[in-house]
């Protein structure tokens, strides 16, 4: 009995110490499992409001989750004058970099007006997920000038495109990091409270899930998909139609992934032919298309700067780093300026 007592006390003490240490390493934001039912969501899910997120597993980012459950340095108030609405995945969400290094923060700074760029980027919300949510996002935030949508690819399957056209939310997009676990326990308030207060538990689950993913061989999906011109055109028409009701200009920015070959050349993940077709369709539908490929190449060739990767992860892989965010923000700003600034 005495040994069991020692074991339990030590376990508890160690757990408390680990939670304290984890506060500075991985105090990730907790997902909101019980959103207000009267509220229209602009994304499939969002975070619980008013949190600080600290993550050092990839890069090091300390960011603020605002009262609206998104990564923004300022709080949301209904009818606030939003000029540019940023939509996209974890690349736009930007929890791997500090708050003042994210593309939305930098773009806000460049535009020069206070709190005009609003970020509703959330993990796993790739282009088609953003398309599904576009209407509700515009209705809720009513951006004055632009809605910026991120994509890291232009080739999609027929099923994905059809689902997006029918605005059918995909189940797989919500299963990121420890969120799958949260989905299972979301109705138990006590357990949720424990997880809110215990960052080490969130870290442990995150790590175990990562172990399992590699153990199952679930790495990258390398299936090559043909460019579906017809359905992609319908998607872009949908974007244009949904934005034209409020006279807001859509911008799609595309950022290819990068690798370095054995001779030290930067290789972009894009399929140039498909990207060109996508760009042409965007132009046809009156959507601004920003391709980051050239800028990424130029930065590497001139300054050896890579848009992805951090000093604690693989070189050039993973999420956009602070340079990548800066490049995107600058190119978006250039595009906006060249089109006559804010409309």
């Amino acid at each position: 009995m005495k040994a069991v007592g020692k074991f339990l006390i030590s376990g508890l003490l160690a757990f408390l110490i680990l939670n304290f240490l984890t506060l500075f390493y991985f105090n990730s934001a907790v997902r909101d499992e019980t959103p207000n039912k009267n509220e229209t969501l602009a994304t499939n899910w969002k975070y619980e409001p008013n949190q600080l997120s600290v993550r050092a597993t990839e890069g090091y980012g300390v960011v603020h989750i605002n009262n609206d459950g998104y990564v923004n340095e300022f709080d949301y108030t209904p009818n606030m004058p939003i000029s540019i609405l940023m939509m996209g995945s974890s690349q736009v969400e930007a929890v791997q970099v500090n708050a003042n290094e994210s593309m939305s923060y930098l773009l806000n700074d460049m535009v020069g007006e206070e709190n005009t760029v609003y970020n509703i980027g959330i993990s796993a919300h790739y282009l088609l997920e953003s398309v599904k949510n576009l209407k509700s996002a515009i209705e809720k935030y009513n951006p004055k000038d632009y809605v910026v949508i991120e994509t890291n690819g232009v080739n999609f399957t027929e099923k994905e495109l059809t689902e997006a056209l029918n605005s059918k939310t995909s189940d797989t997009t919500t299963e990121t990091e420890n969120q799958g676990f949260y989905s299972k326990i979301k109705n138990n308030e006590i357990i949720r409270e424990i997880f809110r207060k215990m960052p080490f538990l969130r870290l442990a689950i995150y790590q175990i899930k990562e172990f399992q993913e590699y153990g199952n061989g679930n790495t990258e999906n390398n299936v090559s998909i043909e460019f579906n011109e017809d359905l992609t055109n319908q998607i872009l028409e949908k974007i244009k139609n949904e934005t034209s009701t409020t006279n807001v200009q859509p911008i799609i920015f595309y950022h290819p992934y990068t690798t370095i070959d054995k001779d030290g050349n930067l290789i972009l993940s894009d399929d140039e032919d498909s990207v060109q077709k996508f760009a042409d369709l965007c132009e046809k539908n009156g959507i601004y298309f920003l391709d980051m490929s050239e800028r990424f190449k130029e930065e590497y060739e001139k300054n050896y700067i890579l848009p992805y990767g951090f000093s604690n992860t693989s070189v050039g892989k993973g999420h956009l780093n602070k340079y990548g965010h800066e490049m995107v923000a600058e190119e978006l700003y250039k595009l906006i300026k060249s089109q006559g600034g804010e409309q």
Partner: peptide, 13 residues
């Protein structure tokens, strides 16, 4: 035991 458990936790984390 506490030190040992902290080390195990650090390894996992």
């Amino acid at each position: 035991l506490t030190i040992f458990f902290v080390v195990i936790g650090l390894i996992l984390g």
